[in-house]
Design a protein around this nucleic acid. Structure first.
Lengths: 248, 248
DNA sequence: CGAGCTTTTGATCCGAGTCAATCTTCGTGG
DNA sequence: CCACGAAGATTGACTCGGATCAAAAGCTCG
């Protein structure tokens, strides 16, 4: 069980602390969770629609996606997940998985038995609330994605998702100024925005031509962050980051 | 404070019991919540994006919608809510409302202070889990809506949302066979499916012409339920209704 | 009974999908 | 170190679902 020198470096602790003050006792309780850590290659399913998992996972490294396939073979990605996220935490209370979960990049994934999480929640209502809250933020992001896909054109959609990814990457310390690694393919961006891969590509070229982004070699840079945000009509409120403080 | 003869008639109790077994003690605890009940006309906001509410609401009668307006004045509805639903329960843990909530039809709404809900959750982890679960089902519905709007054409989208509404209406006892009241306007259906009102209307006429639905006089009937489900590729798994049992 | 929605219809236009081919990139094995 | 194959990115040509605009017709309710 590979560990982190400083508990605060553990992605899950980091995540929970970003919104809740954790006591030493609570931190210890989280670190005491039995986590089975596994390395998974890129583009592999972690769990599938219809499964009835007895555990949830936490992302320790890498990026994953939640998606569904439609009858006629189209794919819709509903979410990307960053280190610290628990992408299938909902299975703690919803028996059947309603969507599939897979890796985007190569990942290190930690699996935690539901029983352990339930015990934790039963014995500590503060941690229960913290975990609950993370699922509420996920839901808020889904709502924004409904708006993105339902009411914005291709240019805005791609701009918006790039904004979101950058801000969330920053939250987990993976950005360098306005740049971050971008293991997500254009096809995946298309499937996340309800566009075809061809059109997504054209829109990306437009964003480049307009000097808003650089996207190449697995790296993304928001060349002109204010302009990109404006093009996307991006308002990060829905991410509910550090809600007490002001932030950009 | 108008009450229900039988506690099991209380929409909130009903809702929680549909997935969790409640003990007498838990039922009593829920009924003891201080609920301020208010009558609200159709088409009125209950809470707005940006608000920081100190209470959440439960729908006692009528239908509400969660929505956002985009910069350029377009509206996207992200959810409809039925009696028993708590459409802004997320505000218990997310300080700022990221979307607006308003009535579709005239409604009776019960307001419950966050403090009361928090106390309930702190003292009863089972009820906390039950409430948490309702927000997880909401999230699952958002995911399905992303798919609906992102990867289905207009005909399927409208068919799908009609299926969802009928099934959820049935869940709360508002259907008569395959019919239910339908206070939702075509414009609202359009805003919920990412279509224009004109196109939504045309699609609805197609569904009528194909003998799948009847929609008039504030009433909806699924004339040919199997065919409607098939046209929508509707799989109710995502609603997580009575998950132990089989259901149609 | 009239104002204001909601629903409907017609005409026109465009964003985005589809199909098909080519070009890049990159990991892998020889 | 390079050839090869597979996946990802790009380009061009063509088509179409659905948006927009405009106006008429039905409803509902104060």
């Amino acid at each position: 069980m590979p560990q982190f020198r400083n508990p605060a470096d553990h992605p899950l602790i980091r995540k929970l602390q970003s919104s809740f003050e954790l006591s030493d006792h609570e931190r210890a309780a989280v670190l005491a969770l039995p986590i089975q850590s596994v390395e998974i290659r890129a583009n592999q399913d972690i769990a599938r629609e219809g499964d009835r998992p007895g555990r949830s996972c936490v992302i320790l490294r890498g990026i994953t996606r939640t998606y569904k396939m439609t009858r006629d073979g189209k794919r819709q990605i509903m979410a990307f997940h960053m280190p610290g996220d628990m992408p299938d935490l909902q299975s703690l209370h919803l028996k059947v998985l309603d969507s599939s979960l897979g890796t985007v990049s190569a990942c290190r994934i930690g699996f935690i038995p539901h029983d352990a999480i339930r015990d934790l929640c039963d014995s500590n209502s503060g941690l229960a609330a913290a975990l609950w809250r993370t699922t509420l933020v996920d839901a808020s992001i889904f709502r924004e994605w409904v708006v993105n896909v339902g009411r914005r054109d291709g240019y805005q959609r791609i701009a918006h998702i790039m904004c979101e990814i950058l801000v969330r990457m920053r939250e987990v310390g993976l950005t360098d100024d306005h740049s971050c690694p971008m293991p997500i393919s254009q096809t995946e961006l298309a499937d996340a925005t309800g566009l075809s891969a061809v059109h997504a590509n054209r829109v990306i070229q437009d964003l480049r031509a307009d000097g808003l982004i650089v996207l190449k070699g697995g790296m993304f840079t928001a060349l002109d962050w204010p302009a990109l945000k404006a093009a996307a009509a991006f308002d990060p409120t829905y991410l509910h980051l550090g809600e007490g403080r002001a932030s950009d």
